[in-house]
Design a protein around this nucleic acid. Structure first.
Lengths: 334, 334
DNA sequence: TTCCCAATTGTAACCGGTTACACAGGTCCG
DNA sequence: CGGACCTGTGTAACCGGTTACAATTGGGAA
């Protein structure tokens, strides 16, 4: 219960050796007598010495941590990705330093800055960052992986993308395949790049099939889904399919439609996006595009680790979500 | 694109002032001429200087980070709590340094050690840590909040507990109240303190009501729930209620029972624990004990911040989960 | 004009580690 | 027996910031 933690000099004094020997002894270097090493160990134990990692990092110029910048943790998507990041980091012996990116870009820059001397690499997921800003705020000498960047990216950064356009197209085509002709897209919030890409994929597929597009504004929340479903019920323009830009909205849509007496999928089929753990468990189970989020996180870390070693980013890495057909577009359920 | 990041001395040289002035200028101290400050700002911008936070931490002896030690991120529970922690940390201007506690206690100790000079406070959630070990591995001078500790806790640490016993009792009593008499408990994994406490609450309530207890082994996974339900279906000992020690298992139990032709809740009622986001959304919606997980996380951070300031832990703080009655023990659903 | 004081600025010590280099002592060799 | 070499250890510089304290400067008071 000392007031101040013991430092390496305290241990050196206690053991009657120099700080260099203490450092060598405790870090398992070979050039120390077993006798000295033992004496140092004893002194360290005696004083309850725990190395000050921050100081060590400073002299070694490496921290054993990876910085993660996320828009927020609210919503399944980032929680799941974080799981993967965490697993990957653990596997490589890194810790994760988390920082929330606020909508305020001023603060975001500060948050990234606050990681500068503390992490060996950076993972940035910022689907709503104003283009060019990202490049400006990334510290120049920290290897970084950016996931689904919207604008310019510094050439030194590794890019990982989820192919939102192709995935959205696939979902839309699936709805068309099962015979739907009046498919409405419930998009995500404005200013979120992924929302835009998914809408683009939807429009592509609709246009290619010679149908007419109809897009409702959404916000990625369950409430948004409920509101959208109400709109559809009220106006009765004969929609027979809904492609929601994420699962949460789809999960709001389905029960609202059913409460209004519409059968899903017979009267209206519904597709989501993300394949959050929820999607499989709700009734009726939700058809969705599976992004292997945990895998994505793992992969991001692996690529970051590679980048930290080579300093040479690979070509952008593209992941294509897979269509998972369940009850909301499939056979009637029990 | 310099090879090495600019340091404060580079900026000082560029601006033609001393390092002290640079530090003062950039940190907004008052004793600097506006002219100097401007010159420093220009030089910093010119060189793309970003302060090295690790170095700053070392001299200030504070890091602006809170260490979080979790058993793993797998499972809704910790994800949700982490969300709360994250929100709280953000609000207080802290970042979160995450570390997974492995089952291997050797490694866990290392993980905690690896936080020593890098965090201002520690949050430890270790429902499966061998008693006394925790006390040994917590660095003596770092304020810590431990959540649901199992054994001895250093007197300097703040304790936050979820009253698992009372909550499990409440759920069991609820099942009794709705008329069930053969209530089986599906417990969590051995070696997890929360599993033990929930079982104890169940046994208390069963004993108080003069009924007979029956406990099945579980593992907190959906598959475990499915397996347990199969057991119940197979042996037909007339169970009319199941209290699963977490939602995930309950979510495995319910559809398995229904697939076997049993009505939930009429033939067998099912209760879960945690109120994960899933619980409300599955069909039939799950009756469960709500732990406000996000709130819990927030609260933990608030208490930690208070502890960091006062160095005086408050009395252990007890949270009591609330019973949320939904369809699996309530009225038949649509 | 001279002295004093406040406002700025610079120098250098410090945070707690790591490690290049110097040095002491012993071994082995010619 | 002297020198080359190897091993173990200590000294002190360094990582990149902050800040106590000293030094410098200019303005106002006496």
């Amino acid at each position: 219960m000392n007031k101040r933690s013991a430092t390496i000099r305290d241990v050196a004094r206690e053991a009657g050796v120099s700080v260099a020997s203490v450092s060598r002894a405790l870090n398992g270097q070979s050039n120390v007598t077993e006798a000295t090493r033992e004496r140092v160990r004893a002194a360290a134990a005696q004083l309850g010495y725990v190395p000050h990692v921050g100081a060590r990092n400073l002299s070694l110029a490496r921290s054993g941590a990876i910085g993660v910048v996320l828009p927020d943790l609210h919503g399944e998507f980032f929680s799941e990705v974080l799981r993967g990041l965490d697993r990957g980091a653990s596997a490589h012996g890194f810790q994760l330093l988390l920082s929330n990116m606020h909508v305020d870009s001023e603060l975001s820059a500060a948050a990234i800055g606050a990681m500068n001397g503390r992490v060996d690499g950076l993972v940035v997921m910022a689907p709503h960052l104003p283009p060019n800003l990202l490049a400006a705020m990334l510290p120049p000498n920290v290897p970084a992986v950016v996931v689904n960047p919207v604008g310019e990216v510094p050439p030194a950064a590794q890019i990982v993308r989820v192919d939102n356009v192709a995935a959205a197209r696939a979902m839309t085509e699936h709805l068309i395949d099962i015979g739907k002709r009046h498919i409405v897209h419930l998009r995500g919030p404005r200013g979120n790049i992924e929302s835009d890409l998914r809408e683009r994929g939807y429009r592509d597929a609709i246009a290619a099939a010679g149908l007419t597009a109809r897009v409702l504004e959404g916000d990625f929340t369950e409430e948004g889904g409920i509101a959208a479903a109400r709109t559809l019920i009220a106006d009765r323009q004969g929609a027979d399919g809904v492609f929601a830009a994420n699962d949460l909205m789809a999960i709001g849509v389905v029960p609202t439609l059913r409460d209004a007496g519409l059968n899903v999928p017979e009267d209206i089929a519904v597709g989501g996006f993300d394949d959050t753990p929820l999607a499989r468990l709700v009734t009726p189970a939700l058809t969705t595009m599976r992004i292997e989020m945990v895998d994505l996180g793992l992969d991001v870390i692996n690529r970051l680790v590679r980048l930290m070693e080579s300093r040479e980013p690979d070509a952008p890495y593209l992941r294509l979500p897979a269509l998972v057909v369940r009850q909301t577009t499939g056979a009637a359920h029990a």
